[in-house]
Structure formats: C-alpha cells, structure tokens
C-alpha cells in the first residue's frame, strides 16, 4: 500500500560511543527498505548549535527530497540562541526545534529555555523534547510539566519523544486535555502496546512516527506501527499524515 511515510525523529552523524555509523548513503538505503519517504533530521550533540545546524543543512541541501531539517540550540549559550533560531528557521528552512535536556543536563522547564520558547511561541514553531530525565525529582510528573509549558507557551506544539519506548506508561490520561501535545513513537524499548496506548492517550491525530535513526533501525521502528493493533487509517495518520499537517510539508519522493 502507498501512503506518505515521514520519520519525525532522526539524527545525523557518527555516534562513536554507541558504535553507530552515520553514513548517509546507507541511511537512505535503510529508509528505502523501510518504505520511508522523508526523515526529519537534527544534530543535537555539539556544544555549538551553529556548527550542528550547518551540518544538517548541508545534508538536506544534497538530498532535499529525502530529508527535512530540524533545528537545535543549546541552553548553555542563551546569548547566541535567538540569533541562531532566526538563522535556522528563516535562512536554513528548519521545521521544528529538537532539544535533548538529558544530554545538556537541564530539564526542559528550566528558565534558561524560556527566551527560546518565547521566540518559538511567537513564531508558532513546534518543539520536540525528551519527556523525563534521570535527574528529575519525584515532585513533578510528565503531565504536569507539559501542562505548565503549554499554559505558558500556548502556541507551541509540544512533541514528547520516545512515547513508543516508555512514555505512555508515565503519562496520565489528562495529557489528552493539554493543548497541542503530540507523542512520538521511537525507542529502543519497544514496549508492548506502546503505539496502541499512545493512540488511546491522545488520539491518532496526535501520534507521530519516528525512528531515532541512525541509533535505532528504521525497519524495526516502523514495524511497531505497521504491526500495531490499530486501524489502517490510524496507521496512515501516524506514519506521515500527521507530520505533513503539523510541519506543513509535502513529499515528492517516490520509493
């Protein structure tokens, strides 16, 4: 069956500490095996966001039919963040911001992110973030955190990464009521019924297929959606329809 398939959550580059080779030709071959038209790629592992975003833009420029650029800025250099956001979204054409608070050792509701969110809120640009952190105390839940952020920044669509790994089990049912919440499906855990639970929690219009390439294999990640016990219509939305609407993009690649 033909349906638009867009990977909402992917990265670029080599990851030596996880023995991952980010060779882009092989990357595209695996996308083809999996039936993925396009992947939203980011580079979030550097201290210098400008270098990271340039690397993404270079790959997208060489493969515009296969990759969608996603931006990154670091909360440790707030003096550089706004100008880099303007460059990333209005010069490099990026479509959403990915933040990785675990890696940067700041939870996503830390005040250092607030100027970044204010700019994104003003421009109505989505943010994808990890949902829980190893340094979290017991005093806040995932649902509370995103409710607070959603109230403070109501025009940002918030995407919770890795709901397909462990997220849904940590989310309360009230998350459905939070404005502009989406769940993304990738993860190494492959928790049973994670996709079904995500659909139940927020509805199939707010679940986005992702892979975490090149850390995880896209063929396994898409298998979680393809083999989930949900309707074919829900699968089509999750695999690409929702991302097309959210990011206002079109696919022109033909597998």
């Amino acid at each position: 069956m033909e349906t638009p398939v867009i990977d909402f959550h992917a990265h670029i580059g080599n990851w030596g500490r996880h023995r991952v080779n980010g060779n882009i030709e092989r990357y595209i071959e695996i996308m083809d095996h999996a039936g993925i038209d396009m992947a939203c790629i980011n580079c979030i592992f550097l201290g210098d966001a400008r270098i990271a975003n340039d690397r993404v833009a270079e790959i997208v420029a060489k493969n515009p039919a296969r990759f969608v650029p996603a931006a990154f800025v670091t909360p440790h250099y707030p003096d550089e963040a706004i100008s880099e956001l303007e460059r990333a979204f209005y010069q490099l054409g990026m479509k959403y911001l990915k933040i990785y608070p675990d890696y940067y050792q700041k939870p996503n509701d830390h005040p250092d992110y607030f100027p970044i969110y204010e700019w994104l809120n003003e421009h109505k640009i989505p943010v994808m973030s990890h949902a829980t952190y190893p340094f979290d105390g017991p005093d806040i839940t995932v649902t509370e955190r995103f409710r607070n952020l959603s109230v403070r920044y109501p025009d940002i669509p918030w995407i919770l990464a890795h709901a397909g790994s462990s997220g849904p089990g940590q989310l309360a049912k009230e998350i459905r009521e939070i404005r502009n919440i989406y769940l993304e499906t990738c993860g190494s855990g492959a928790v049973k019924e994670a996709i079904e639970n995500s659909v139940e929690l927020v509805g199939s219009d707010r679940v986005l297929f992702g892979t975490d390439m090149p850390l995880l294999d896209a063929r396994h990640q898409i298998g979680k959606v393809i083999t989930a016990d949900i309707s074919d219509n829900d699968k089509r939305k999750i695999l690409g329809g929702n991302t097309i609407k959210l990011l206002n993009i079109s696919t022109n690649h033909t597998n």
Binding site: V191, K192, E193, R219, H220, I222, G223, K224, I226, T227
Partner: peptide
C-alpha cells in the same frame, strides 16, 4: 521478542525488510 515486555511482531517485520 521479550514478550510480554515487548511486542512480538515488529522484529519479525524488520527481519523481513533486511534483504
């Protein structure tokens, strides 16, 4: 599969796409 912690089908699906 590591069922029931994980689902059975995704890895089977993935294996069929590995050429």
């Amino acid at each position: 599969s590591r069922f029931p912690e994980s689902s059975m089908a995704p890895q089977v699906y993935s294996l069929h796409l590995n050429d």
